[in-house]
Simulated scan of single mutants.
Amino acid sequence: MKKRLLNQVILITGASTGLGEQLVYCAAQRGATIVACARNQIRLSQVIKKAHQLSGRPAYSYTVDLSDPEQIEQLVAAVTKKVGPITVLINNAGIGQFENALDIKLTVMEKMFRVNTLGAIYLTQLVALQMVAYHQGTIINVASQAGKIATPKASVYAASKAALIAYSNSLRLELRPRNIRVTTVNPGPMATDFIKKADQSGKYAQSVAKIMLDPERFARRIIASIGRGTREINAPAIMEVAARFYPLFPELGDWLVSRPVFNRK
């Protein structure tokens, strides 16, 4: 079990902190060759050093801004040349800002879509073309429970993640005959720096403390799904129940989501 991912080349975006960092460590413990990507090269260097210690195998880091298509192209070309074909892609990078829809700036909207949606889609396209040639591979797209149930002050972020979920659902059907598995991951609030950056007041983190996910435990769950054809991973359970309930009773769902008990931003 420990070396189940031996000889797998796993590319993980947003790998310098939070869930991405834990995904690196968890995959490394199972013998994978890690390719970690993020914008923070200093943090990446530290993460890669630990990954190498855990796996005993080479580990690689690349500084990349996923809002820039040219950098994405350069990343895939560099990894393919130096490391080899990417067998597992985990699109984990994401940014968010909790702000009223009428107040959020266009530059912020564009950045969220370029990183959360377009960057992930373009990187997936380039890597999937390699996977098709080898007739195997796994793509894991980290979306969000916000993409299933939008709440006040998360309109643009929710829209970017809902688009990623829809893309993943279609991609899954297209790539299934090619022996390429697509998994969508939809976490709720998680104890990472993401929440601190999205809501600098700190009130949201305090209000959802009881259902906050632990990134290390959740990373283990994601890595364990590789090779199993898992369609979706959803957490916490209470939010997934709500997501299934919402489409059946949308008006009641709107009312509940607008109440303080559910709207914590």
Rank of each mutant, 00 (worst) to 15 (best):
V24N: 11
K148S: 04
F98T: 01
W255C: 09
M1A: 12
V76F: 00
R43P: 04
A205Y: 05
L123S: 08
V132S: 04
I34K: 12
S170K: 03
V47A: 06
Q46C: 05
P58N: 08
N40Y: 01
V47W: 01
G94L: 03
P58V: 09
G94M: 05
V35S: 03
Q29D: 05
Q46G: 14
R39M: 08
I95C: 04
Y60Q: 08
A143L: 01
L19Y: 01
V83I: 08
Y60P: 04
T63K: 08
K82W: 00
L54A: 05
I90K: 14
S61A: 15
L54G: 07
V24Y: 08
L175Y: 11
N169A: 02
S144V: 04
T192W: 06
I233Q: 03
A150C: 11
F113P: 01
Q130K: 10
G20M: 07
A146Y: 10
I12K: 04
L213A: 07
L164D: 11
K153T: 15
A146G: 15
A133M: 13
L102Q: 14
G253L: 13
I72S: 06
A150W: 02
G18R: 14
A78D: 15
P189M: 09
M239D: 00
V88P: 06
A159W: 09
T13Y: 01
G20P: 08
A205N: 06
Y157I: 09
V79H: 05
A128D: 04
I233E: 03
K105G: 01
L106G: 00
K2F: 05
P247R: 09
A77W: 00
A27D: 10
